[in-house]
């Protein structure tokens, strides 16, 4: 029960920040895909950089475990491409469309219903996918520092540097 309350509270704060950052709207999402408005990229990359530093700090202090998704090239790449097509048509993400609905953009309802149907279709297709796409290029739970055999803080530092350069470029170009 406690877990559910934590989930709800975390979601409420997240949704609040999404709305304040103006990242929920179709125009912002599609604006990023059309390379016209980088608001959501600024938001996402800021989140990733802060969380990356904080979570690795917790891990080094023995206070948290990483949650690593398995690398399966076939399903990661094909799934990513399929997701991108759907995202480009819908203009909302699975999580953020609930937030879009929360600020009155009620076409998100159709996206939510579509996602329920799409999830049901995926469950139908799962046995066939498991025997094919999900077996192509399986590398398991790997991370970039492990693969390169270097300390994770080097990788974090590179990501932070790339993020800062990207932010500076966005501001210069007025994106």
């Amino acid at each position: 029960m406690n877990e559910l309350i934590y989930g709800l509270v975390t979601g409420i704060i997240f949704g609040f920040l999404f709305q304040k950052g103006r990242v929920l709207r179709y125009d912002k999402q599609i604006g990023a895909l059309r390379l016209l408005d980088m608001t959501i990229v600024k938001f996402m990359f800021s989140t990733i950089l802060v969380a990356m530093v904080g979570v690795y700090l917790l891990k080094d202090l023995g206070m948290a475990k990483l949650s690593i998704k398995p690398t399966i090239l076939g399903s990661n790449i094909i799934g990513g491409l399929i997701f991108g097509i759907g995202w480009g048509i819908l203009g909302y993400c699975p999580g953020t469309q609930l937030g879009a609905l929360g600020e009155g953009r009620w076409d998100a309802v159709w996206g939510i219903l579509g996602m329920l149907v799409g999830a049901a279709l995926f469950a139908e297709a799962y046995p066939a996918l498991k025997a094919s796409v999900l077996t192509w290029g399986v590398y398991g739970k790997i991370t970039i520092p492990e693969v390169l055999g270097i300390n994770h803080w080097f990788v974090v530092a590179v990501f932070v540097a790339i993020g800062m350069l990207m932010f500076r470029w966005f501001e210069k170009k007025g994106l």
Partner: peptide, 22 residues
């Protein structure tokens, strides 16, 4: 038109997201 596109787009997007496991 928007409703149909959003519905179809949503179905495609979640299928891809689940396949990529993300």
């Amino acid at each position: 038109k928007r409703a149909i596109a959003a519905f179809v787009g949503g179905a495609i997007a979640i299928f891809g997201a689940r396949l990529a496991d993300g």
